[in-house]
């Protein structure tokens, strides 16, 4: 019961306290305007480059924006605690680590999902890109899978934040890697072989591919394998993140380096 309380109430409290982006002054430009600007930028660049496929750029750039809260908010679960001076209290608490950190991931997943859905709906209306209403249910599932897997990667970032102070820089770099490799603006099949291998191990890649297929009329069962791969990657990164958190926490205690990262 205590773990459930930590998971739900602790997670929500931590999200509200640490993720400073919930202010409308940040939320509107970052979560609502920037994804739309990114969609328009790449749609127009695509047209200039001779790849006039607005729907491709709309889907890729809308879905990848789910990564913004997933990466940055999870990084803040450690970085924010350090900034507010509460990291030693968190580490000293007897709370179980799995519900503690996974609880923090839940609101972030919802946040990422809503950002991508907003960008996709608004972008499709503004660009007049036709995405059949019958496909929206499946697309929502694919976006949710992307948000979950990316939050897994964010959890790994949170663990690294015990050693790296510049969490914003780290999250920006990871986001940049996703934009290049995850098939956001260039289909994975059109990339060199080594990039395809890297892409296969990144969150978003499979989810974006599934979203494209769903928008083109595929059934959810047709992309089930792709979505399972996406969720599997999320679980892998989350597991790595939790293991790394445990290791770094042990090291921080042993070497008294918690606040000196």
């Amino acid at each position: 019961m205590n773990s459930l309380r930590i998971f739900f109430i602790g997670g929500l409290t931590s999200y509200r306290a640490l993720f400073h982006w919930l202010s409308p002054w940040i939320l509107v430009p970052t979560f609502l305007l920037t994804p739309l600007f990114q969609i328009f930028l790449f749609v127009y660049i695509g047209r200039t480059a001779g790849i006039s496929d607005d729907r491709f750029f709309l889907i890729g750039n809308a879905v990848v924006n789910a990564a913004v809260p997933c990466l940055f908010a999870m990084g803040n679960t450690i970085g924010g605690e350090r900034n507010t001076g509460t990291l030693p209290l968190l580490i000293a608490s007897p709370a179980k680590r799995v519900p503690l950190f996974l609880g923090r991931a839940l609101p972030v997943i919802v946040n990422g999902f809503l950002v991508a859905v907003f960008a996709l709906i608004t972008g499709s209306l503004l660009l007049r890109v036709d995405i059949p209403p019958a496909t929206w249910g499946g697309i929502a599932v694919a976006i949710a899978a992307c948000s979950i897997s990316c939050t897994g990667l964010g959890l790994l970032g949170a663990a690294v934040a015990l050693r790296v102070r510049e969490t914003a820089v780290m999250s920006n770099i990871v986001l940049g890697i996703l934009i290049v490799f995850a098939g956001v603006n260039v289909p994975v099949g059109a990339m060199p072989g080594w990039m395809q291998v890297v892409a296969g191990w990144l969150p978003m890649t499979h989810g974006i591919r599934a979203t494209h297929d769903l928008a083109a009329g595929a059934a959810l069962t047709d992309v089930a394998g792709t979505l399972l791969a996406e969720l599997g990657l999320g679980a892998l990164y989350a597991g790595l993140g939790l293991a790394l958190l445990r290791w770094f926490e042990y090291e921080s205690r042993a070497r008294a380096t918690l606040d000196t990262a």
Binding site: I45, G50, N185, A190
Partner: peptide
């Protein structure tokens, strides 16, 4: 990304 897009478009 942009270089890759232009290459893809045979620019």
């Amino acid at each position: 990304t942009i270089f890759m897009m232009f290459k893809q478009g045979d620019a």
